[in-house]
Amino acid sequence: MEILMAFVVGILFMSATYLMLSRSVVRIILGTTILSHGVHLLLLTMGGLKGGAAPLVGENASSYTDPLPQALILTAIVIAFGVTALFLVVGYRSYKVLGTDNMEKLRGNEGND
């Protein structure tokens, strides 16, 4: 299963990279979102996907899945969300102010000052 997940993560990274290299700001933000998905899945996979109960003591199971990667991912999800939200608003504001979402045209103040 881990091998399959490694390929899934690879595909997520690939499409995220491609989106981040594109011209449109929206696609770049979508790319970062997908990249964070890939990272979260990678964290989970590397922690091991062996069977076992959900990490709740009440289950009284003989083995549990590893709780530590889950805690790390939870933190990461929240942070990624905060960053994505901020990105989205920055993208929205820059489109409003500058009138373009084309990264090729967003080149600092060269020639404007």
Binding site: A6, F7, V9, G10, I11, L12, F13, M14, S15, A16, T17, Y18, L21, G38, L42
Partner: peptide, 10 residues
Amino acid sequence: ISVGVGAVVT
């Protein structure tokens, strides 16, 4: 580039 990134991560 993106295929490379994906392959390396895998």
